[in-house]
Amino acid sequence: MAKLNMVQALTLAMDQEMERDPAVVLLGEDIGPDEGVFRVTAGLWQKYGDERVIDTPLAESAIVGTSIGMAFAGLRPVGEIQFSGFSMLMVAQLEAYASRTRSRTFGRWTAPIVIRMPYGGGVRAMEHHSESREATFAHFPGVKVVIPSSPRNARALLAAAIRDDDPVVFMEPKRSYRAFKEEVPDEPELIPIGRAQVVQEGADLTVISWGAMMRPTLEAVEMVQLERGASIEVIDLLTLAPLDHTTFVESVKKTGRCVVVQEAPRNLGIASEVIALLNEGAFFHLEAPIRRVTNYDVITPYFGRELMYIPSVGRIKRGIEETLDT
């Protein structure tokens, strides 16, 4: 057991998976001697060498396209896109090949690749460095989308993603990279992909979120609980595609009220899909309209204004209070 931040936990997951399975290789820009611009591959090039930690030329489509080829031939590539803003350059490979290879060949060929990328705002980064486009990837059938929220679940989910037989887009909330530490067991640990986690149980309302929004969400929940004595259930989605609708539908059937918190723009986000599924599965148990606390449908603001647009603790808290009061 060691106390690790999310960066260290992700490094641990890759290190242990590389030790376990020689088919696992890493590829990406500046992941070798530089150890990744966020140091997520710290020490791995030193330990595993050039052949397994591949410092690629500057080309995102190449990172994903060659990953697909490596996977066809039996490797387990883990690609890093330096920032999610640059992931759009590899979408053709992801959508046209990785996502549908299993389907179009009836399983004869598969593309078990992991594409890691830091995403999200709040760190005063340059333009194109703060987007939250998880819904874009989740919209491609065949692609799994995973977003951890803490060091421990980051480690367990990344290990599971590397062992998964499907393409996984693994989005890392960079705002949480070094925000806090958590005990992470030394022994490899897995969290099954496709399962949400009930972080805390409650009776009056369900709050659903994921990624970097989990921290402000938990803070807001605690304040409402203290101030009003309300009992609130909190769900961390962890996997955004395919969604674990059973977990949140059952929860809302029990509580009758729900708020979904999302860092991404409002339009066609994961929150929209969660609410649609709740409409189908829990409508007759609802005691209030489901609220969503989200960013707005604007171009991701450059850092001067970003904190006015990303859901804050105060906004999340008001969303919860208003839903309790309806």
Binding site: E29, D30, G32, P33, D34, V37, D55, P57, L58
Partner: peptide, 11 residues
């Protein structure tokens, strides 16, 4: 250089 990648390794 391209960040940490020297010209000889880029191409």
């Amino acid at each position: 250089w391209a960040i940490s990648i020297p010209r000889e390794k880029q191409t």
